[in-house]
Design a protein around this nucleic acid. Sequence first.
DNA 1: AATTCAATTGCATCCTGTTGCAACAACACA
DNA 2: TGTGTTGTTGCAACAGGATGCAATTGAATT
Lengths: 144, 144
Amino acid sequence: MSHYTSDFARLIRQQGYRLTPQRQLILDAICELGAHVTPEAIYRRVTERAPSINRATVYRNLDFLCEQRLVVAAHIGRETVYEIAGAEPHHHLICRTCDKVITLPHAAVQRFFRALQRRYSFIVDMDHLTLFGLCPKCRKDSRL
Amino acid sequence: MSHYTSDFARLIRQQGYRLTPQRQLILDAICELGAHVTPEAIYRRVTERAPSINRATVYRNLDFLCEQRLVVAAHIGRETVYEIAGAEPHHHLICRTCDKVITLPHAAVQRFFRALQRRYSFIVDMDHLTLFGLCPKCRKDSRL
DNA sequence: AATTCAATTGCATCCTGTTGCAACAACACA
DNA sequence: TGTGTTGTTGCAACAGGATGCAATTGAATT
């Protein structure tokens, strides 16, 4: 992670921003907690190590990290979850009954977006889609 | 609107629910305000006529009306907007630069959902999708 | 190492949305 | 028209998220 962090440090300093301990802790927390992390989980994690950190600082840094494209935000229902920005954007199928999450490659969605572009001349630009429905297993169970 | 309301009254009474003045006002407000109405707008509208109405009552009734399928909720970013449930479910393309909203018929999206079902055996069940991107006009402007 | 300046933090405060609970009232039934 | 059941409301309190502002501090420069 250290090379990751130092890249990050260089990157943001070049743009006149700063690498504060709070900002580091927040980025580290997202790394460690993995995918689909809620702001609250990040806040709790960070306060374990720096109890005096303020909630507003967490939110402001999440916005900042998203703007820098180091972190991506996904809106799932009403809540926003975060994760480290990977090389490829990806999407999620979430089962309404068992909450299982299936990852969808960007290509599967891109085809749809291109069709919309052809028909409506509208260029959809979303790097994360969340689609709810019924997973194979729950579908089978519901038809017994 | 009166026949609509009386249908509504019969419908919910049959299920053991009640038609309160607050509930009526909230439904009326959504009718009058049109599509993509925020809870806050509904609350303001309703308090104009019944100042003593409580915010919690508005939120609880929005949930109720959604459960009764008289109203549909759409999640746009972090916020939830409501509108009267039409005969056909539909979707929206929203331009990031000019905020223009383009309505998308369900058929256009269903094709995509069916493709996902074939490939992933996952049945997507969403009656409202919101896709962000660039509308034809703004796209043209941005390429001058 | 000291200086400087703007990015950032913490605090206070506000706003939206949720929940438990006691009081109220819609409406089915007599 | 009165009465009882229970769905519903208003209130109070709370949780997550956003914002204005004064104080702090990262880091570039000397």
